[in-house]
C-alpha cells in the first residue's frame, strides 16, 4: 500500500512540481484548452446572442464578432465598425498543471483517472472565466447599459462574474477538485492532528 505523503513532502513537491508542470503545460496549452472555447461558445451563444454575431476559434485563439457598433478612431467619415473581441482560452486554464502538481504531491492513487477527470471538470470553470472575459471586454467598449440593452445590475453582474472568473476560479477550482479526489489524504491530515492532540494530553 502506498504511504501517504507527509505535509512537508506535499508542500515541497507541489512547490517544485507546479512550475515544472506549468512550463510543460505552456507547450500544449493551446490544444488542452481548445474545448474551453467550445463550451464558452455554447454559453455565449445562449446568454449573449443579441450581442454576438459569430465566434471563430482555433487552437490558442477565440475571436468573437459582435453586433456592437463602435466608432473607429481616426476615421474622418464618422465611420462605425462592429466590435471584434479576442481572448486566449488558455489564459485562465493554468489550474490543470496546479491540479496535477497537487495530485503528484499527495502521491495520489488512480492518478491517471483523477487527472483525466479533473481535466474534464476544469473545462467548465475555465469556460466561465473565458466567457466573462469576453463579456467584460464587450461591456467596457460597448458603452452604457442602455446602449447595450441591459440593466445596470446585469452590467454589475458581468463585472462580478469577470472578477470571480479571473481572480478566484482559476486557482480555487483545481484546489476544490483536488480536495474532493484526495479525501483520504485529507483524512490522514486530520487523523494525524487528532493523534498528536491525544498524545499531548497523555
Amino acid at each position: 500500500m502506498r504511504r501517504p505523503s507527509s505535509l512537508t513532502a506535499f508542500f515541497v513537491t507541489a512547490i517544485v512540481g507546479f512550475p515544472l508542470l506549468t512550463l510543460a503545460w505552456m507547450q500544449v496549452s493551446r490544444w488542452t484548452s481548445y474545448p474551453v472555447g467550445g463550451i464558452a461558445e455554447l454559453f455565449l451563444g445562449h446568454a449573449a446572442d443579441d450581442w454576438i454575431r459569430s465566434i471563430e476559434q482555433a487552437p490558442g485563439t477565440f475571436e468573437v464578432d459582435t453586433r456592437i457598433a463602435v466608432t473607429v478612431p481616426g476615421q474622418k467619415a464618422r465611420g462605425t465598425a462592429e466590435l471584434v473581441v479576442e481572448a486566449d482560452p488558455a489564459r485562465y486554464a493554468y489550474g490543470l498543471p496546479l491540479l496535477i502538481a497537487l495530485l503528484v504531491a499527495a502521491r495520489s492513487r488512480h492518478f491517471l483517472r483523477k487527472a483525466v477527470t479533473g481535466y474534464a471538470l476544469l473545462l467548465f470553470p475555465q469556460a466561465f472565466s473565458l466567457s466573462f472575459d469576453v463579456l467584460r471586454q464587450i461591456v467596457v467598449v460597448g458603452g452604457t447599459p442602455a446602449r447595450l440593452g441591459i440593466a445596470q445590475w446585469q452590467m454589475e453582474a458581468i463585472a462580478l462574474g469577470y472578477q470571480i472568473g479571473a481572480l478566484l476560479l482559476p486557482t480555487v477550482a483545481p484546489a476544490l477538485i483536488w480536495l474532493w479526489f484526495e479525501r483520504p489524504f485529507f483524512a490522514a491530515v486530520v487523523v494525524e492532528g487528532m493523534l498528536r492532540q491525544e498524545m499531548k494530553k497523555q
Binding site: 507541489a14 507546479f18 494525524e192 498528536r196
Partner: peptide, 19 residues
C-alpha cells in the same frame, strides 16, 4: 506561476491549521 504558488501556500496553511 505566482497565482498557483500563492494557492499552494493557502492550501498548506489551511491544512496545517486543520491538523
Amino acid at each position: 506561476l505566482w497565482q498557483g504558488l500563492i494557492m499552494v501556500d493557502v492550501l498548506v496553511v489551511w491544512l496545517l491549521w486543520v491538523r
